[in-house]
Deep mutational scan, measured.
Amino acid sequence: MEVRTIKVFTTVDNINLHTQVVDMSMTYGQQFGPTYLDGADVTKIKPHNSHEGKTFYVLPNDDTLRVEAFEYYHTTDPSFLGRYMSALNHTKKWKYPQVNGLTSIKWADNNCYLATALLTLQQIELKFNPPALQDAYYRARAGEAANFCALILAYCNKTVGELGDVRETMSYLFQHANLDSCKRVLNVVCKTCGQQQTTLKGVEAVMYMGTLSYEQFKKGVQIPCTCGKQATKYLVQQESPFVMMSAPPAQYELKHGTFTCASEYTGNYQCGHYKHITSKETLYCIDGALLTKSSEYKGPITDVFYKENSYTTTIK
């Protein structure tokens, strides 16, 4: 009895394709271990004539594949690729409408935090270190965002349907971005203890939790000093293409032309909904596939993004 075979390709990165001759009487799992086709788990399936010449994702289970996976995804987590594939199996079914010149995501599976993050990423200057993220990001900007969303979920250790947080998501993504040249110098002034300067680099240099107003941050924000008295913390120097200011959701007025974009969060910790506000020729609110415009805006804002380049204080 002759062994019926077909020729397929296996890959971990969709760049390096490895030619395989597979036995049609055995499952993919018996031949390769966990195997995925377009995100779908085909591990328990036997090869079919229609699979001839198709590319299958496999887990990096030998040295060659491990090197290829690390170079593309910059992670050695053995569960990463499987999590990416199972997320992709959902995100490829989502709709990605162009809204006001940006790629958004039609609401499904509690994905409003991903839509808000995706919209924000198209408006701030950011370059990702893992080629996987950078490639998928370019495709997302062009309207094909399924891979990018699935990668975000995998890097953030999230599953489809789980509630997510924009600030946490951005923080994970910033860790995989090139923020080497970003720098922030802060000064804390206390009447009792004097003053202390701190220099922050990388992710810490672009994120701040405690106030939404970048102007206020430049002037000074009140913080408790270690001595128990009130101290003032203010920005001395900022070198970065953008800054992200966050605070627990509270009524906040966004003035046209003073910011790049913002995240609105309605609801409580267990259950809520994100919308995205962007400042173009007027203010726009993007909620999944829905767009509304207004000249002014007041609502429960939790993150505001500002364009920056270089700032030095005039406070002496």
Rank of each mutant, 00 (worst) to 15 (best):
F9W: 11
T10Q: 10
N14E: 15
N16Q: 09
H18M: 06
T19V: 11
V22D: 06
D23C: 13
M24K: 10
S25A: 15
F32A: 07
Y36T: 05
L37I: 11
D38N: 11
A40D: 15
A40R: 13
D41L: 10
K44L: 12
K44C: 11
P47V: 08
S50G: 13
H51S: 06
K54F: 13
Y57V: 11
D63V: 08
D63A: 11
L65K: 11
G82W: 13
Y96K: 02
V99L: 13
N100Q: 14
T103V: 12
W107V: 04
W107Q: 03
A108W: 02
A108D: 08
D109V: 05
C112A: 03
Y113C: 02
L114C: 03
A117W: 02
L118V: 08
L121G: 03
L126S: 03
K127G: 07
N129Y: 07
P130G: 02
D135P: 03
I152K: 03
I152N: 03
L153F: 09
T159W: 09
E168D: 04
L173F: 02
F174R: 00
Q175C: 08
A177S: 09
A177P: 01
S181D: 14
R184M: 01
L186W: 12
L186Y: 15
N187F: 06
K191M: 10
C193D: 01
G194F: 05
E204M: 08
M209N: 14
L212I: 08
L212K: 02
K218P: 01
K219E: 09
V221Y: 08
C225V: 01
K233R: 14
L235P: 03
L235A: 01
F242K: 00
A247K: 03
Y252C: 10
K255Y: 07
K255W: 06
T258S: 13
C261E: 01
S263Y: 00
T266W: 06
N268P: 13
N268D: 15
Y269F: 12
Q270N: 15
G272S: 00
Y274K: 01
T282M: 12
L283F: 12
Y284K: 01
I286T: 05
I286R: 02
G288S: 01
A289T: 10
L291S: 15
L291K: 10
K293V: 11
S295G: 12
S295T: 13
E296Y: 14
P300H: 11
T302Y: 01
T302W: 02
K307H: 12
N309L: 09
S310Y: 14
S310L: 15
